[in-house]
Amino acid sequence: MNYLDYVSRKISDVYSKSIVLLIIFAAWWLVGAYKLADPTILPPPSKILRTLLELAKEGDLVFHIKMSILRVIKGFLIGGTLGFVLGILMGLSKTAEKLVGPLFHAVRQVPLLGWMPLIVLWCGIGETSKVVFIAIGALYPMVLNTFEGVRGISREYLEVARVFEFKQLKLITTIILPAALPNILTGVRFSLTISWMLVVGAEIFSVSAGGLGDMIWSARDTFRMDIVIVGLIIITLIGITLSKSVKLLETYFLQWRKTSH
């Protein structure tokens, strides 16, 4: 209604959101301009921008991004699918839960990075080891969330299925999967986020040709802080995009949830 009010509120909103970032940025710029810090340790913003453009122009950046994303997709698809199946099985059947559960929870105690030396010994330092590493990371949240989703289904809905004498397949497609979908999508989001973090780790811990992790790790060898920072920014942006996209999927697929809760 009150348009001026709205505009001024918007402006102050943008101001408060960006002011701290702006100040930090200005300080960084000043440090660079007055050579207050070693430029190899803290390269000025202009240098970052130049490096970014350089990397982009030579196609290096696109190459590294492509490598990392491909690995994440492979690892996520393998680990996520496996986790989904495992979570559904454990959710549906108490026997399956008792059979696999203890092993799963024991294995889960090993910190993800702890697997790295073992994986490298078994799979070498090639593509396989990285994909396996990511798959392990993608597996856990998928299993846990899918399991929760299936187990959390209200008895009331399951009784509806019994009243209508649903067959197994129909029960799964019309009741179990839709009812567990919110949790499953949460699992997908966590899975993807972890996969994205792990691809950087995988590329650091098992020497690799290409990938954003490799890019920043090699840059460390040659003391190129500018490349490290560019890499960090790109990695962060892609990570945010990934989790935002799954969130969009969630709002799209879960419209029915609106006020029904």
């Binding site: 009331e156 809905y157 009784e159 509806v160 839709p178 009812a179 029915w256 949830r257």
Partner: peptide, 10 residues
């Protein structure tokens, strides 16, 4: 049923 138990996703 006592509360309608319509499946909210359909």
């Amino acid at each position: 049923f006592q509360n309608h138990r319509l499946l909210p996703w359909l």
